[in-house]
Simulated assay, not measured.
Amino acid sequence: MVAFRVLCVLLSALMLLNAQQGNGALTARSQKMIAKVNEDGPYLGLVIPNLYEMNPLLESSNYTATNTIDVAGRRFRFGTIGEKKVILVMTGLSLINAGITTQLLLSLFNVEGVVHYGIAGNANPSLNIGDVTIPQYWAHGALWSWQRYGLGPDDELPLESAGDYTRKIGYLKFANYTVNVTEGSPYDNLLNNVWYQPEEVFPVDGTPEERQHAFWVAVDPYYYEISKQLEDLVLEGCINSTTCLTTTPKVTRVQRGTSASIYLDNAAYRSFIYNKFNVSPVDMESASVALICLQQRKPFIAIRALSDLAGGGSADSNEADTFTSLAATNSVTVVLKFIELLAVNSESSTGYAYY
């Protein structure tokens, strides 16, 4: 009878384990590994979009790897950079992947803060390819309310009175970009206007299901203050002996960056978002990391090296085809120095700003 009961318990455990593996829940082995590494925390989380941005860090002599844990299709790499314990994780392309990965990182592991880095397009005409930008604010630039044809700025948006949508941030009028119009002739566009919208945010220290709104999300003020010391850093200007940039790359702190799950290679839109929002880097992940860290009340900063001009250049092809590797290397150079500076300072920040 005892043997039968033991067999039943074992069968139940196996069925539970199979169910965990089948439905995506953590296995008992994964839970044990996570609990063990968390005892050695906290860690600084490094959230990285793609392998070509992560590989220069993995190959750096400053990074020492220890172990890995695979969860939900993500590989969390543990190690040290100098004296700092770190977790590296690759997100994959787009806001959704970046959001899922950042949420997993913060939900599973003992993380003190997040550093996000990679390459980006450049909307700022005063900056150049190879420069590394550190924005103070990030926004998701592709959450829109698309207005029906015939309505304009004075017309209320659907659900605006309920607080779901707003006209406060501004809009893009497609008719302003109509070409081949003869002088004095009327022109219009059936696409009409799109209005930029803030994200709904549900902070961990707020009331569940009670939303807040955020469009511009500030990086951690203490991290941003430390980043001031990076502006004299020497960066790489050449891919090889024959292919070099015409300007010397620099690290610069800027006001704003924006993200969308859109690869921007269009000069007109590049000019519009720069003039409308004063953004410099444009990418596909940073705003998602910013919003998750805002919701989870974790300090973060995003560092983006400029690989192309987002459609603003004169070349027939996008500059990223040539300068991605150089920009990725420069972003890693800045991140390594930032972590070194962070390691020698013990102060932490809990200040969050958004509007």
Rank of each mutant, 00 (worst) to 15 (best):
V6E: 15
L7C: 12
L10Y: 01
L11I: 11
A25K: 09
S30W: 03
Q31N: 12
K32A: 09
V37F: 07
E39C: 08
D40Y: 15
D40W: 12
Y43W: 00
G45L: 02
L46N: 02
I48F: 02
N50D: 07
N55R: 00
D70V: 08
D70W: 02
G82P: 00
M90Q: 13
S94W: 06
N97I: 05
Q103R: 14
L105P: 07
L106H: 02
V111D: 06
H116R: 02
A120V: 09
A123R: 03
I134P: 13
W138Y: 11
G141H: 09
R148E: 11
P158T: 06
L159M: 14
E160T: 13
Y165G: 01
Y165I: 08
R167L: 11
I169H: 06
G170D: 10
K173C: 06
F174P: 02
V179G: 05
S185V: 09
Y187M: 00
D188N: 15
D188Y: 14
D188Q: 12
N193M: 11
V194N: 10
Y196P: 15
Q197W: 11
E200N: 11
V201A: 07
V204P: 05
T207S: 12
P208K: 14
F215I: 12
F215P: 10
V217M: 12
E225W: 03
S227L: 10
L230K: 12
E231L: 13
C244V: 04
L245D: 02
P249G: 14
K250M: 04
T252M: 15
G257V: 06
G257A: 01
G257T: 04
A260E: 09
S261K: 04
I262H: 14
N266A: 09
A268K: 07
K276H: 13
V282H: 07
L291G: 10
P299C: 04
A302P: 09
L306I: 06
D308A: 03
G311H: 03
G313V: 11
D316H: 12
S317G: 14
A320G: 08
A320W: 14
D321N: 14
F323W: 01
S325Y: 05
S325N: 07
E340N: 01
L341M: 04
N345Y: 10
N345V: 02
E347R: 03
A353W: 15
